[in-house]
């Protein structure tokens, strides 16, 4: 597998009269872990939504796909009606097959579900209702669904919120495995320690591009203080 490279050229975003993002250009290399960091409200999630094609924007986003064109997406925590009788397995079935989930799960889909539940160490939770999952468990389920069909690009929007230490460890392992297999990862992350440890490249966004480049050159002590100061000031 080879993940895509992504070229963002003069991307800007305006909602009504409000400028959300000033024009910015950067490149996300194939097979890299690329983190988007910056203060809350700075436009990281809006940038992701532009990359996902969900927001009308100015400028150009070019994705150089290789043989596999699948993209897995892990959204921020989803809120669902807690009493809806939908199990973990139901949720995955809804996403993974065309036949209505209430008519049963096909053998093929069962096998795919078993594999991703195993990978994300979620097998023992497969019959739990979504409403009874903790925040961290729901996050792991969202990660699990992103692994089918086999993606070449993973887009993660603050996926570690609410995870406990074991969950985080499992998550990091999965991300590193995905990278080792050649996949590209775009990751909105607030944890600068984790970004320093795992990311190959970093883009700092605060209503436009503040900095972009290899992690070691972008994240230094000055940057840490700068970002925290801006985030704390909001």
């Amino acid at each position: 597998m080879q993940g895509p490279a992504i070229h963002v050229e003069q991307l800007s975003l305006t909602l009504g009269a409000v400028a959300i993002l000033a024009p910015m250009s950067f490149t996300i290399e194939s097979g890299n872990i690329h983190c988007l960091i910056g203060p809350n409200g700075g436009g990281k999630t809006s940038t992701l939504r532009c990359l996902l094609g969900q927001m009308p924007h100015q400028g150009r986003i070019r994705i150089d796909w290789y043989e596999n064109r699948h993209c897995g997406y892990v959204p921020q925590l989803i809120e669902i009606e807690k009493t809806l009788p939908l199990t973990v397995r139901d949720f995955l079935t809804l996403l993974m097959q065309q036949k209505p989930a209430f008519l049963g799960t096909s053998n093929d889909t069962q096998q795919h579900i078993d594999v991703i539940l195993e990978k994300t160490r979620f097998t023992d939770k497969q019959n739990l209702m979504l409403g009874s999952l903790s925040g961290g468990e729901r996050q792991r389920l969202l990660f699990a669904q992103a692994l089918y069909p086999d993606p070449a690009l993973l887009i993660l929007d603050e996926p570690m919120t609410s995870l406990d230490e074991a969950g985080m460890h499992n998550f990091e392992e999965l991300i590193l495995d995905f990278k080792a297999a050649g996949g590209t990862i775009i990751w909105v992350n607030h944890d600068l320690e984790q970004v320093s440890r795992l990311a190959d490249q970093v883009t700092v966004i605060d209503r436009g591009l503040l900095a972009h480049g290899p992690t070691s050159s972008v994240i230094d002590e000055k940057m840490r203080q700068g970002i925290y100061r801006q985030a704390g000031a909001e």
């Binding site: 959204p75 949720f91 809804l94």
Partner: peptide, 18 residues
């Protein structure tokens, strides 16, 4: 369309990406 309708009611961004 049942499964797709159900997914889009659970999370629209997730549904878009799929």
């Amino acid at each position: 369309l049942y499964n797709r309708m159900m997914v889009s009611s659970l999370n629209q961004s997730l549904a878009h990406v799929r």
